[in-house]
Design a protein around this nucleic acid. Structure first.
Lengths: 215, 215
DNA sequence: CGAAACGTTGATCGTCATCAATGACGGTGG
DNA sequence: CCACCGTCATTGATGACGATCAACGTTTCG
């Protein structure tokens, strides 16, 4: 639900320890709602999240937002554009306060070419993202709204941080009104407790049961 | 619409010329409807398409198919799974007769580690796929059926090969009936001519005009 | 001063209307 | 026989609008 990449984080942390004076990596902070990357801009520096949560989303020509992913600790942003040299496909904005490494693009490319471990980490990162987006595109197309919500909730559970309902709705490509409707139903069925933005799953079994009815 | 990767094809062709007796790459043919890769199987050898078109799709638990991409000349399949060592995410099946290189997985990994040019090609391939799937997921969620069809058609035009309507419908995540309805409308508006599986765009301007109405 | 009362604001929901997408079924034409 | 369409019914998702409720700060009064 919120992607993380512990290995990538460790790679950069240990790199920093070994090269404390390296100027290609710097620390940068963002406040909630600040943007790290703007869709349509030319590829610039990359960021690696150390703390906090960011939202990666595309704004369509009709104004609607589609959330591609929520990114957490250890996730890197801007790599796709860096590799292709293309303009930014998506926006990245901070949901919480964020602490991040800012990585010079040239340095990223250098690492990619000269450090096999890093190269491998990025390859794996790409591959998992591909898997994730493909899976999600598939089931978000083929299942009704209620199921999408259930799917998210079943992935939830131990997630510490709660997202705003608005963000959740964007992620599911549902209007808030529709999301609320589904949540209320689940509430009445006793599967869920919702106060404000805090969603609490009361019966994982019940949720799995409901999901299986869509087959 | 139908992805291709000329550079990757050239890489393997020239590799073969230089190493004619290499046993890690072999030629393999597939007939229409044959499968190259089955969803859920363990990662095996990879394929690189030399001729023909393949369909990459996920079958959901409720039986519906979601087409991730149509693959043509120079596209490689099975790389994501090879990198992650995970089971196959999707099915790959031949739409036309296919001629392909079959690449041993171990050899692929070796190439990836030891050949910087190849490594770069794969990185770029991953990155463009990420861009494509992300873009598509976004606009397929946020626009109505008619628009999705228009979008495809506007990308069409110079495409030589025509896909079956059934495949097109799966790609758009629409039932055939619905696809036919849209096509008929466009037909009546004089923007499109359709006989059998051959779709011919009569007025690109008209299509762009219709698309802009969705904003 | 402190507590009760009040008003404002934003989130949520009940209800109804609407629309888009789909399914069903039978007909037609190649 | 198969692909396609006319037509009608149904379903799911959404929008509109007003009512309600909770949170919060402000006012009023004892």
């Amino acid at each position: 639900m919120i992607k993380t990449n512990q290995q990538l984080l460790e790679f950069f942390e240990s790199w920093r320890e070994k090269h404390p004076h390296q100027r290609d990596i710097s620390l940068q902070k963002f406040r909630p709602d600040e943007s790290l990357i703007w869709q349509g801009d030319d590829a610039g520096d990359l960021f690696l999240l150390i703390e906090g949560i960011a939202k990666c989303f595309i704004r369509e020509e009709n104004g609607r937002e589609y959330v591609l992913a929520f990114l957490g600790k250890g996730e890197i942003v801007g790599e796709v554009e860096a590799v292709l040299g293309s303009e930014n496909l998506s926006n990245i904005s901070a949901l919480t306060s964020i602490q991040a490494f800012r990585i010079k693009r040239a340095f990223f490319e250098e690492l990619l070419e000269e450090n096999p471990d890093f190269n491998r980490l990025i390859l794996r990162e790409f591959a998992t993202r591909l898997q994730n987006t493909a899976k999600r595109a598939s089931y978000q197309q083929t299942f009704p709204a209620e199921y999408k919500v259930l799917k998210i909730l079943s992935l939830w559970e131990k997630e510490e941080t709660s997202l705003s309902k608005a963000d959740l709705a964007d992620y599911l490509a549902l209007p808030i009104r529709s999301l609320n409707r589904v949540l209320k139903d689940l509430n009445e069925k006793g599967l869920l407790e919702s106060k404000g933005n805090q969603l609490k799953i009361l019966s994982k079994e019940g949720i799995d049961r409901l999901m299986s009815q869509h087959f």
